Amino acid sequence: MKVFSKIHRHQAIQKIRGELERDSFPRLQMFLLVTLTGASGFVASYTFLHVGIVEMWLRYLLSFGVAYLMFLVLLWLWLRTRAEDYADIPEVSRTASSSSDSASACCSGKGGDFGGGSASGAFDSHADGISLVGDSGGSVSDALGTVAEAEEFAIPLAILMLIGAMVFSSLFIVYSAPMLFAELLVDGVLSASLYRRLRGLETRHWLETAIRRTACPFILTAAIASASGWAMTLYAPGVHSIGDVIFYLRQGG
């Protein structure tokens, strides 16, 4: 029964995804939502700065939290506006129910899993130990001199990493918009009606689906932004914004 539930859910999602891509512009709609989300993050950062939260790493972290909450609210509003269009789609239920026989034949062996493959990466770090002995003072001094010379490149790199992380996460969410919107519609609008018809649809709350699909890009970007703010503060103590850091660099530190 659990396998049937996943099959019904997968087919319903694919059906709605196809209709979204054919009848509307889901990626453009998501681009607008992401733009509003970014604007809310900038407003939050500006507000936090003027209420006394001057630490860049903390302010960026809090701003991303506010932006993510705004993103979830925007997804809820989008779902409410599209609810009437997808409140009753008999084609989905007929497609899913007509495939029950073929699915049962397929599941007589090893059940297929349409839940989607999960990508996992293994990062192996093989770092050689650095030993400092008594007569290596010259080598340590050279290393410190090299680090000092590299500082002028560290901050531009941190700024580029911050911008790159925000652009990459935004593009990822925009690109995956058709699947995300389809899952939200199935879980937020169609789950009750389809479950009554099919008695076997795997149901989830739309908020669970939204967080599962979007939390990782936001968390990763927030971590990079916070680390970049921390690095910029270490390089230029007393700065409170990227504009201050750029001015500091132009003045030669």
Rank of each mutant, 00 (worst) to 15 (best):
L75R: 02
M56Y: 03
I13W: 01
L75N: 02
L28Y: 08
Q14Y: 03
A44F: 01
L58C: 08
R27G: 04
M30G: 03
H8I: 15
Y46A: 12
H50E: 10
E55P: 07
R9K: 10
L79W: 03
L79P: 00
I53P: 12
E19F: 11
L74T: 00
A12T: 02
Y46N: 11
G41N: 03
L75V: 05
Y60A: 15
Q29M: 13
G38D: 07
V66L: 08
L62M: 08
R59E: 05
W76M: 11
G38W: 08
S40T: 14
T35I: 07
I7L: 11
T81C: 14
W78L: 08
F31C: 11
Y60G: 12
L33E: 01
I7Q: 09
R82H: 15
L72T: 04
I7M: 10
F31T: 11
H50N: 09
V51L: 09
L61I: 03
R59F: 00
H8G: 14
Q14M: 10
E21M: 07
S40Q: 04
L58V: 07
S63D: 02
S24L: 10
K15H: 15
S63W: 00
I7P: 05
F64W: 05
R27L: 04
L77K: 07
T47S: 09
G65N: 05
F31Q: 13
F64L: 09
Y60K: 12
R22H: 10
L62G: 01
H10I: 08
S40H: 09
Q29R: 10
G52M: 04
F48C: 06
S63K: 01
R27E: 06
Q29W: 12
Y46S: 08
E21F: 04
L28K: 13
L28Q: 13
V34S: 06
L62S: 03
L79T: 05
V73P: 06
F25H: 14
S45T: 12
L58H: 02
R59V: 01
P26S: 00
E84G: 07
K15E: 12
M30C: 02
Y68C: 00
V66F: 04
L61S: 06
G18W: 01
V73D: 05
A67L: 00
S45V: 10
L79I: 04
Y68P: 00
R80Y: 10
F48L: 12
S40R: 06
L32T: 14
L32D: 11
L36F: 11
V43L: 14
S24H: 15
L74E: 06
R17P: 02
Q14L: 13
L74D: 01
T47E: 11
V73C: 07
G65I: 02
L20E: 01
F64N: 11
W78R: 06
L33H: 08
E21Y: 04
A67E: 01
R82D: 10
L77E: 07
G41P: 03
V66Q: 02
T37E: 05
W78Y: 09
S24A: 15
L79D: 02
G38A: 08
Q11V: 12
R59Q: 05
P26L: 05
G18F: 02
